[in-house]
Simulated scan of single mutants.
Amino acid sequence: MTAPPPAADPPGPLPASLALEPTLQAVQGLWRREWLRAPGQEDTTTEVHWIQAGRLHVDLRLPADLPDVRGARSLADLPPRVLRALARSEGFAGATAVERGVCTWTRRVNWRGPLDGPDVGALFFEEDALLERGVFADYAELWRREPAAPPLVARQLRRVDGQAAVLARAGDRFLLGRGAPGALAALAALPERLERALAHRHRGALRRLFDQEFCRGRLTPEGGIIERSTNPLREGALAFPPDAFVADTVRLTAQDFDGATQTTSWIPV
């Protein structure tokens, strides 16, 4: 479940013990990626978590070398090099289908914006490990299931302006993906659009680019508390109140580019 790397020689042969034909039911739960391998690339340090709850998924990927932003009040306080580093994160969420061991992740929201192509992987199980191999790109990822008690549930949400989000929980752990308005229809990926906004010192464009968040955290009596986020200034903040998985209207909190905290209402769809 990754952006296609450059085409080249595929990863090595599969272990003979791996069996095809996992189902959507079999991949339910909280997963942590152990490694990514592609031609000329191996990644064991990016922090990657994925919750599959029913047909919905949320995936968050944070590079290990993200800069320290302690002391900053808002994203607007950060220098361009730090904003560029934050733009290297990845997050996406949407619907999942598995047919004959081949999984298709249809992204409804995507941190980087427009998609490079379909996100499709062949899945193979071996005990608690799940191996994913790209169908339209040469890569392999190894996933391990994390222990998580019930419930396992997800909600697809929409705001009155059309902005989309997916909220998923596995026991007391959650992942939230909130996309930027119009990002999927953009003509360029987030890093390229960020460079243009920085070059023109376009504050409004920067606000729009970072009007999104992908985060993970824990459920507490106060609600969902963020532990890791594409906006590291949000770590420790409240993402949503405790009724978010049952309420008819879900209230999500956010911090805008200038540091103001906002609470908006979302409708399950």
Rank of each mutant, 00 (worst) to 15 (best):
T2F: 11
T2R: 13
A3Y: 12
A3R: 14
A3M: 11
A3I: 12
A3Q: 13
A3S: 14
P4C: 09
P4I: 12
P4M: 08
P4Q: 07
P5Q: 00
P5A: 01
P5R: 01
P5D: 01
P6I: 04
P6V: 06
P6A: 13
P6F: 04
A7T: 09
A8W: 05
A8P: 00
D9T: 15
D9A: 15
D9L: 15
P11D: 12
P11W: 09
P11S: 07
P11A: 09
G12E: 10
P13Y: 08
P13R: 05
L14F: 05
L14N: 00
L14D: 08
L14G: 00
L14R: 06
A16L: 14
A16V: 14
A16N: 04
A16D: 13
A16R: 11
A16F: 11
A16C: 05
S17M: 10
S17P: 02
S17K: 06
S17N: 07
S17H: 10
L18S: 05
L18C: 10
A19D: 03
A19L: 08
L20T: 12
E21R: 12
E21T: 11
P22Y: 02
P22F: 05
P22D: 04
P22W: 00
P22S: 06
T23A: 07
T23E: 02
T23R: 02
L24R: 03
L24V: 04
Q25H: 14
Q25C: 07
A26N: 01
A26W: 00
V27Y: 01
Q28W: 04
Q28C: 08
Q28G: 02
G29K: 06
L30P: 00
L30S: 01
W31C: 00
R33D: 10
E34L: 15
E34G: 15
